[in-house]
Simulated assay, not measured.
Amino acid sequence: MNKKLSIIVPCYFEEESIPLFYAAVENIRPQLPNIELEYWFINDGSTDGTLNEIKKLNKLNPEHVHYASFSRNFGKEAALYCGLQNATGDYVTVMDVDLQDPPDMLPEMFKYINEGYDCVGTRRTTRQGEPPIRSFFARMFYKLINRISDTEMVDGARDFRLMTRQMVDAILEMSEYNRFSKGIFSWVGFKTKYLEYQNRERVAGNTSWNFWKLFTYSIDGIVNFSQFPLDLAAFFGFFSASISGLAIIFIIIRYLIHGGDPTTGWTSTICVFLFIGGIQLMFLGIIGKYIGKIFTEVKNRPIYIIKEKK
């Protein structure tokens, strides 16, 4: 009996890449014996010809090509979650439509699944083609998050992975609004194998990710999977209060013993006040970030809204 593989493909302004992606996956179909393919293209609010290209594939192969189109852009995390909710396969894979996730790795991934792994992920060993500053901060992010979080995240890991139905069902139980899939994939556990590959360029179009989007995405990952920033804020508060208390005692004792002009040193005092005030504002911002996350969770808004589905 054939098993089904659901392929989740988030799309945002990818009209040029979609037909190339579909052809590339269909080319490796003969290498996947006894596997039926189910495509789920998720149009994440694209306003170009992305949806039209997806509909062409649906008309060409209505039994296996499906799609969901959002009412607006909700982000890649929402598209991933939508795909996972709609996938019906015994196995599920997440792939970028720009072919930076090589479809020809799927046969090898299935080999490890058949050996007993619940998930076979991929990680890039190089970042050729990326701006050096982006690569540097990406490496620093993984080093930082693995130091301050109990959830291990593999440097260079991609969303491209092959998962069993059991693992997908576990991920779907995590219905939180603030999603960081790389962390969620690791948090649920299960036996995972990572395959390495060289970075590949996009086959068409331009990436919608820029440095600022990646930076804010990294901040979300830290906030979602670590309370270290709050611990750091508490430590600095205690440390500053202790040092200030000792300094006040020292100043009072020195004044009682030696006397002197009480206005001496007002400049340094103002500088200290401004420094401490800056630290307080910074950590208030950190606390506000966590409170903001709580606020979006308790509103219980839908993660995405589907305008059209087939």
Rank of each mutant, 00 (worst) to 15 (best):
50 T>F: 01
91 Y>P: 05
38 E>C: 09
107 P>D: 07
122 T>L: 13
17 S>Q: 14
79 A>T: 01
69 S>C: 15
99 L>A: 11
95 M>D: 00
117 Y>H: 11
121 G>Y: 00
63 E>A: 15
75 G>D: 02
82 C>W: 03
63 E>F: 06
49 G>Q: 11
88 T>S: 12
41 F>P: 00
119 C>T: 15
71 S>W: 00
37 L>A: 10
114 N>S: 11
29 R>I: 12
71 S>C: 13
109 M>R: 06
46 S>Q: 08
94 V>F: 11
53 E>M: 12
83 G>W: 01
98 D>M: 07
40 W>S: 07
111 K>R: 13
51 L>V: 11
114 N>T: 08
115 E>R: 15
48 D>M: 00
40 W>H: 15
102 P>G: 11
30 P>S: 01
116 G>F: 11
49 G>I: 04
106 L>H: 01
103 P>F: 02
56 K>C: 13
61 N>A: 12
112 Y>R: 00
120 V>S: 00
23 A>C: 06
96 D>A: 13
108 E>T: 15
18 I>S: 01
82 C>I: 05
51 L>N: 09
27 N>C: 12
39 Y>V: 11
93 T>Y: 06
107 P>W: 04
53 E>Y: 00
67 Y>R: 04
114 N>P: 00
64 H>D: 15
92 V>M: 04
37 L>M: 12
20 L>Y: 11
47 T>H: 07
80 L>V: 07
22 Y>L: 08
32 L>N: 08
25 V>C: 05
68 A>P: 10
81 Y>E: 07
97 V>M: 09
99 L>S: 13
88 T>H: 05
70 F>Y: 10
74 F>Y: 14
24 A>R: 09
67 Y>G: 09
105 M>S: 09
99 L>K: 04
74 F>R: 02
69 S>H: 12
26 E>D: 12
32 L>G: 10
92 V>G: 10
98 D>N: 12
36 E>F: 13
54 I>M: 01
102 P>L: 00
58 N>I: 14
50 T>W: 03
42 I>P: 00
115 E>C: 10
53 E>R: 08
103 P>V: 03
17 S>D: 12
111 K>T: 14
66 H>C: 04
110 F>T: 01
21 F>Q: 05
98 D>P: 10
64 H>S: 15
88 T>Y: 02
57 L>N: 01
64 H>Q: 14
115 E>G: 06
73 N>K: 03
21 F>L: 13
97 V>H: 07
88 T>I: 08
70 F>C: 07
62 P>Q: 06
102 P>D: 02
40 W>F: 15
68 A>V: 07
71 S>N: 06
87 A>F: 02
80 L>K: 09
99 L>V: 12
80 L>E: 08
64 H>L: 10
29 R>W: 03
91 Y>M: 03
54 I>F: 03
55 K>I: 09
25 V>G: 06
70 F>V: 13
105 M>T: 08
91 Y>A: 11
100 Q>F: 03
73 N>G: 05
108 E>M: 06
43 N>I: 11
26 E>F: 12
55 K>Y: 00
72 R>Y: 06
41 F>I: 02
46 S>H: 08
40 W>G: 08
44 D>A: 01
39 Y>N: 06
74 F>C: 06
50 T>R: 01
34 N>E: 14
77 E>H: 08
21 F>I: 07
24 A>N: 04
103 P>M: 03
